[in-house]
Amino acid sequence: MPLHIEKVSHSYGAVEALKDIDLDIADGETVALIGPSGCGKSTLLGIIGGLLQPVAGQVSLSGPPPADSLNPFTYIFQDFALLPWRSVAANVALALEHRRLGAAECRERVAAALALTGLSEFAAAYPKQLSGGMRQRVGIARALVVRPAVLLLDEPLSALDAQTRELLMEDLLAIWAREKSTRVYVTHNLEEAARLADRVVVLSRRPGRIREVLQIDVPVAERIRPEHAALLIDVHRRLWSLIRDEAATAEREILDV
């Protein structure tokens, strides 16, 4: 489902967070938003999914959302946002309970989402019993269970250690090969952007503007092949050269947002 971001600006009080963001995202495309901390990339993601009201501009869809999607804009959060008092299955079911589905269909959908994320045997476990990677798998299952048209990923792997992150990147790629959705992926991790995105949008520091858009022509599923290793390194290097100076400046900034 094509997505259009038009002249979006946002500010928190006197602090401008985003300025004049124009971006079209094609159906089924994965766009990574990267930039130095405080560039407003999470703010933009909040605006896209309707959790934040932009000061100016708008986000729109071409055409109606697909009929089988229960929740067209669906988030996966950095901190997982699981309910600690609900089991894994009940956390996933939370996304369905208010949708007037039959109990049987609910159970079926939850079971399918758990199977897809390798959580079937953990259905009755509670979040505190799970590792960070398993918790984020619950977050992913909860997002998939509503068949999102646009998947909004807010630094989904940032809270995980390097090895778990690698495993989950593989899982995401495997899931994306089967589930069709448009994806916006916010990250500060250049490798995630280079590995997972069709297009990388580089934002400048406050106020965030689009600084550069980098198309990566190799399909995501093929990027782990050895012959593309040089390409990934090159993408990584170009992204770093685009944000290095601003990241360094942002790092020295006094935070008073």
Binding site: F73, F77, A81, L83, L94, R142
Partner: peptide, 19 residues
């Protein structure tokens, strides 16, 4: 963040309070 999560899945306000 839990309340934002519930809103992002379209839970009505009544459900957000109860759940």
């Amino acid at each position: 963040n839990l309340i934002r999560m519930a809103q992002s899945f379209g839970l009505p306000a009544r459900d957000i309070v109860a759940k």
